[in-house]
């Protein structure tokens, strides 16, 4: 294998009937790193994952996983991937243990290995107490963990995780993150999809923001964040009269305002002094404010700015 990339997607398109779902996707994931595909509902995340895991045909482009073409070398691809779908794929009537042992056998482990591995994974995923209960009695978080455990039975070199933490409570989400982090440390290549910006931020080496079947931004979390500038100061103004005054007073600053909510978000480029200056301006012009807060840029900001989904009610004033 010549290349350093475990996943390569070039010019990928896919339509259902006349609906174009993927409109030319280009992505590369370096071996042993994690890429987060970040996008809203219907962006095409699951479609990409299904194509990568050989479950779905695509229209044009070239897709290789672990050096194998997903179209022509599907069998080889399957030998090297693990897939955790968006919805847990488990046999509800079987116990957690049974599910793991069965899947282990299907990964062609020997009986002893399948059993040993099942025990290890139950331990690792904190499911020992529930091991002999039918999966239909499991909570959502337990299912998600068992589902991920199944994909890790042979620890393949490439793993696809389609929204692994959707529907989990904060504690389970943290636990899941820890498991995923360990995988990256073990040199597994991971492509993870998520709607949670924080998740991509926490876990991934690189993030690709997709919307409407296209990659609209790509880079490290910091690179993406730097696109929306540095910290921002948010002011909530008392009433519309004060609001109008504040807008004119702050005319020399870069800010985003929202008339209905009477908020003004000012981009802070040069730290504390700038904040102090703004506050004294407000004070001198006796603008009455309801609240004031300082925000570090989040991926939410990036996301909103890039996808423009909220751009209609947030008008950018650039002075």
């Amino acid at each position: 294998m010549s290349e350093n990339n475990a996943i390569v997607i070039e010019g990928l398109t896919k339509s259902y009937k006349d609906v174009e779902v993927l409109k030319g996707i280009d992505l590369k994931v370096e071996r042993g790193t994690m890429l987060a595909l970040l996008g809203p509902n219907g962006a095409g995340k699951t479609t990409i994952v299904r194509i990568l895991s050989t479950l779905l045909k695509y229209d044009s482009g070239k897709v290789t996983v672990h050096g194998y073409d997903v179209k022509d070398q599907a069998h080889e691809v399957r030998q090297n991937i693990g897939l955790t779908s968006q919805y847990a794929a488990l046999d509800e009537f079987l116990t957690g243990m049974d599910n793991l042992v069965m899947m282990g056998r299907l990964f062609h482990l020997s009986k002893e290995d399948a059993n040993k591995r099942a025990h290890e994974l139950l331990e690792q995923f904190d499911l020992v107490d529930a091991a002999n209960r039918p999966v239909k009695t499991y909570s959502g978080g337990m299912r998600r963990r068992l589902d991920l455990a199944v994909s890790l039975i042979p620890t393949p070199p490439v793993i696809f995780l389609d929204e692994p933490t959707t529907g989990l409570d904060p504690r389970s989400r943290l636990a899941m993150w820890n498991v995923i982090k360990k995988l990256v440390e073990a040199d597994v290549t991971i492509l993870l999809t998520t709607q949670y910006l924080e998740e991509a931020d926490q876990l991934a080496d690189k993030i690709a923001v997709i919307d409407n079947g296209k990659v609209i931004a790509e880079g490290t979390s910091d690179e993406l964040k730097s696109k929306v500038g540095n910290e921002r100061l948010e002011l909530v103004i008392k009433d519309s009269e004060n609001f109008a005054r504040a807008v004119s007073v702050l005319a020399n600053y870069k800010f985003i305002k929202n008339d209905e909510e009477r908020t003004i978000n000012i981009t802070i480029d040069s730290g504390v002094q700038e904040i102090a200056k703004i506050l004294s301006l407000i004070e001198q012009n006796s603008v009455q404010i309801e609240s004031l807060s300082l925000h570090k840029p989040t991926l939410d900001d990036v996301f909103l700015q890039l996808t423009g989904h909220e751009a209609e009610d947030k008008k950018v004033e650039d002075k």
Binding site: H66, Q79, N80, M102, G104, R105, L106, F107, H108, L109, S110, D113, R117, L152, I153, P154, T155, P156, P157, A186, D187, V188
Partner: peptide, 25 residues
């Protein structure tokens, strides 16, 4: 040959063997 990261390696047998074995599973 499959390159799995973990310790557990799949057994190697003929295609037909696995059709029977998987059916049995």
């Amino acid at each position: 040959e499959t390159k799995m990261v973990g310790l557990y390696q799949p057994q190697q047998h003929s295609k037909l063997y696995w059709i029977f074995s998987d059916s049995l599973t």
